[in-house]
Nucleic acid binder design. Structure first.
Lengths: 207, 207
DNA sequence: TAGATTGTTAATCGATTAACAATC
DNA sequence: TAGATTGTTAATCGATTAACAATC
């Protein structure tokens, strides 16, 4: 009943390409066309689409609007989900300004920081709250997802608080590996590791 | 001869934990201890270490200093690699300031932008160059890796230029899927997809 | 019809985990 | 020695790709 992780990722990517495709005035798309827009094969695309149970009526490719609709039903929550950014440093700012304005079912509606200079400031229309109001605001604003962009030393403690306050999903940009309970979904992204990985394969390509 | 991708990633993460471990004055570490610091099992750790051909002398766990040494030999290039950040928006700034100062074999030594206001500015000790000097600087500064933080519409064109100018690896933070030749290593990270993935699994956990 | 395309099962590939002999 | 730990092969799991019948 749960889609494979990689399929979820690709569906999110397909959606963007499909919306683009629509804007260009095209109504249908073949699996090999969608595949060509990504690092992907036509079979992979068809299999992903099979997973969400959409079938094209004709052999004229997929109806883009319908397909986008099914992807939305699959990925999005009816009412959308509210998101908070914890830690308003450079990265936190970048992410907040990046997401705000994107029409989406995911709304960044609060940021948090310990720095008293930042508190109560409004950035891209999003207000910054002090960390000690975390639980209160999570509940009053019905926030279910947190993006963590705090300094690495604070990461564990912040994650602990988030879990205690009932957050449901965490996207962790710090390099601290976190441990959360089974009812919190955790996704980690480690910039340093990504770059070191690129460096390794560049180095190895030299022989 | 080439390590599995996931092993490379974990080695990068292990290294950080191990350096931390050293700072705490501990000289040895058991596979299950290292595993506990990550989302990991002792078997996985031992297998990863097997790949890089390190074996502990005693059954007193791994000698941390030696292990770090072997990981460094494996991941790092002797002389280090030079890195450029393309696009000095919020995210580009965040990444640049984040990496500069970290003692590492990966040196960010230039940024590039089209905005004439940014050109020649020095940020965290790194100078910003205009895009039309890309090839020149890549060659003169011997830059082999590029981090792309440009607006999505510019992504394809910038990637094309980078490849033409001989860049060897690209870390792409834009949401545009890129296509590069077989001799350029490409790693993509898509923030939007990551967040949508978290949202999907949070939503699905609700039933 | 012939050719292009889809939907789906079976085979393959890559990575993780289980099992276990060897070592201290 | 008994118990803890390692190194490594074999089994399993998850995801991708190949194969192909069905459809227009």
């Amino acid at each position: 009943m749960l889609l494979p992780e990689r399929t979820v990722e690709r569906l999110s990517e397909y959606r963007r390409s499909l919306l683009q495709w629509l804007e260009e005035g095209k109504t249908h798309i073949y699996s090999h066309e969608l595949a060509a827009l990504h690092h992907n094969t036509a079979v992979q695309v068809r299999r992903d689409i099979m997973f969400i149970g959409y079938t094209s009526m004709q052999r004229k490719g997929y109806d883009v609007k319908e397909l986008v609709g099914v992807i939305e039903e699959t990925l999005d929550s009816k009412k959308g989900l509210n998101v908070a950014v914890i830690g308003v440093g450079n990265l936190g700012k970048a992410i907040t300004t990046y997401f705000v304005g994107k029409r989406s079912k995911l709304n960044i509606i609060a940021t948090f920081d310990v720095d008293t200079n930042k508190i109560d400031r409004v950035m891209s229309g999003v207000k910054c709250y002090p960390m000690n109001r975390l639980g209160e605001i999570i509940r009053s604003e019905n926030i279910s997802i947190a993006i963590m962009t705090v300094p690495v030393d604070a990461a564990r403690e912040v994650a602990k608080q988030l879990v205690e306050e009932g957050i449901r999903g965490i996207l962790n940009f710090t390099t601290a590996p976190l441990r959360v309970g089974p009812d919190v979904y955790l996704e980690e992204y480690d910039m340093v590791t990504s770059l070191e990985k690129v460096a390794y394969f560049v180095k190895m390509a030299d022989r």
